[in-house]
Amino acid sequence: MSIVALRDAVVLLGRFPALSGVDLEVDAAEIVLLQGPNGAGKSTLLRFCAGLLRPHSGSAVVLGHDLRESRPAVRRSVGLLGHDTALYDDLTVTENLQFLARASRIEPEEVGSALDRLGVSARLRDVVVGRLSAGQRRRVALAGVALRRPELWLLDEPHAGLDQGGRDLVDGLVAEAAADGATVLVASHDLDRALDLATRRVSVVGGTVTPDAVGGAGIVDPLGLSSRQER
């Protein structure tokens, strides 16, 4: 079963067609790298797959749920790291994640281990998020995604603003998630890093998905196992 199945999906932001007809199929345990220039629609594509936006036309099924009707069900099973971290400035790191955990019916005890995985030191956990640096904040947001153990990870520039150690942690997290059978969509400009990770690469331009420009086939296949996909 495809985790993501979009057919000619059009998504409007106001009157602007941010996605102008996307065809995309993603299978379980794939790590798909979305690349493309600024304003191409990568972030919108991720938010759309998260069930936050209504399709204007076309068909869109994510995790078996139709995005026209059952967006709440999709939202519950995905983890989205957006441009903004969606954290409350006036709550501490722990309080923020405990809120997320309780809302998602996850044991609050797991907050500690999620923060451990992202290397958020114990010293920072009782600090209000508003006082964190941009990089620390992003780590906390990533811990929030990891905490929920989503079936579909949607990461928008996960490496941005992180130090070397943080980037390594992100890569480890993504690899681990895929190994556990989760599916990952990553939008990144950090190609060197993201390429190593991805099992497939997709170009997003003009709000639509085009055949990969460089390889001509849209597949990164380090082991050379899978057949080439012609478009």
Partner: peptide
């Protein structure tokens, strides 16, 4: 968005 994604 966090509220929406949290599924409350």
């Amino acid at each position: 968005r966090a509220l929406l994604l949290a599924g409350i």
